[in-house]
Structures are given as C-alpha cells and as structure tokens.
Write a protein that binds this DNA or RNA. Structure first.
Lengths: 111, 111
DNA sequence: GCGAGTGTATGATTTTCATCGAACAGTCGG
DNA sequence: CCGACTGTTCGATGAAAATCATACACTCGC
C-alpha cells in the first residue's frame, strides 16, 4: 500500500469560496494573525512550520490562530514529519475576495 | 451673525486616511455594522437618520455602532434638526482601502 | 414652554475572544 | 524504546466588545 506520511488527523480546511465576508474580515482583524499572514506572504510555500513565526504568544494561542486562519480559507496546512507546514492560499483567496489580501499585505506598519 | 443649525456638539470624524487596516477590518467584521453599511449604500446621501435603520438592537447600541463606523472613516454624520443624518464615505474610503467596501456590498447574504 | 421625537452618555450585564499553563499525542533520532 | 521536539486539546482566566435600561440633552411643533 501507499506509504503514509502521518498517522495524525489531517487538519480541517475551509475553501475561501465557503467563507463569508464577515468571517474573512474577522480573521484578518487581529494583530497576531495579520503578522502571521504577512510573514507567510514573504516566505516560500510550505517552508514555514507553525512554530517558526515571530509572534508574542504561546504555542497554545498560536495553534488557535492557525485554526482561525484555516477556517477563513487563508492558510493551508500539511503535516511533514513532526511539524505542520503552511502555505498562504493567495490565488484562491484572491479569487474569492479580490484585493483584500493585498490591502493587508501592503499596509505595513510604520516602523 | 450666521444662523446656527444646531447647538449640539458636532460628531467627531476620522478620515479614512488616518485609519489602519486593522481598524477598518474590525469595523466591518460585525453583522450589525455590515447591515448599516449596506443599507446606507442603497440610499441617497444624507437621506437616512440613525433611527431609520432596520437592525435588531436598541438605540444605545445603535449609537455605539455609528461611533465605530465614524471612527473607521466609513460614515459621515451631520445634525439636521432633531436627527442626525448619515452619508457613506464611498470615495474617500475607496481611495484608502481599494476594493474593500465593494467586497462587503457585493457579498449579499443568500436569502 | 410642554411634550413628543431623536440621539447620546453612563453603568451594569453578557458574551465573545485571546491567552496561558498543563496535559496529551505524534514523529523521529539515537 | 526513550527522550527531545512539535503541535493540539482542555480548562481557566482576563480583557474587550456588544448589548441593555435608564437618564439626560437637544430640536421642534403646538
């Protein structure tokens, strides 16, 4: 039989098409999640594990934020050995909510 | 001297240019405020008083929501006799957050 | 100027959400 | 098989936000 990469339950994903505007906006209206999305946008796909992000919260909260991002159709996850790697669903999200992601990514904080 | 229309304190407004993406998203990530913005978009400017909107909340909460919308640069208000009439700041908001308002207005709930 | 109509302010209540600590579950290298 | 590493789950906590009821302020027609 085919080789299994993981015996863990695969994370549940929601396609952007099944997401309401309100849910999408709520997902992006949080400073930690905005940081995650921005960092993710600046990295190659599947290159970032959940723990590799520079956000000031514990791993429990971090896990929660990724759940929210998945539920909003913003992030796709895949298990790779012990870690869970991420990908920003740019094209799909853009198709569903044109311009929205760009607004978040372009509006960098004035450091 | 010039005639005064109102002896009330004029409502404080925030221009969309002075609003962060996060604030804008948070303002639009609420069902009641989404309803207000949609109804407002379907009416002539300055034609709707605060109490004329069909939302399931008391007037105290309603007043609060308009404060949030003003603070996000989404709504402009003017006193007209006993009522406070509203205007959606379409052009200004669109200039600051291109496409965002359209997303909210286009995504009508499937009734 | 009274009273109805409209909106704001205040304080309390409720709900929602972000967060943490601790316990648990896979994965992988030795 | 053990131990380090990664991430999830659970329960509790705290903060923020929505809501309400009440009281107050302003406008206007009578």
């Amino acid at each position: 039989m085919a080789q299994r990469t993981s015996h863990r339950a695969a994370p549940e994903h929601t396609h952007p098409d099944d997401v309401s505007v309100q849910t999408a906006l709520a997902a992006l209206a949080d400073p930690v999640r905005i940081s995650l999305v921005r960092e993710l946008a600046g990295s190659a796909e599947w290159s970032r594990s959940c723990g590799s992000f520079d956000v000031p919260v514990g791993k429990a909260a971090l896990s929660h934020h990724f759940t929210v991002l998945r539920g909003a159709g913003l992030v796709e996850q895949r298990d790779e050995g012990p870690r869970r790697v991420n990908r920003l669903r740019r094209a799909e999200f853009e198709a569903r909510f044109p311009g929205l992601l760009d607004l978040v990514l372009r509006d960098e904080p004035t450091v």
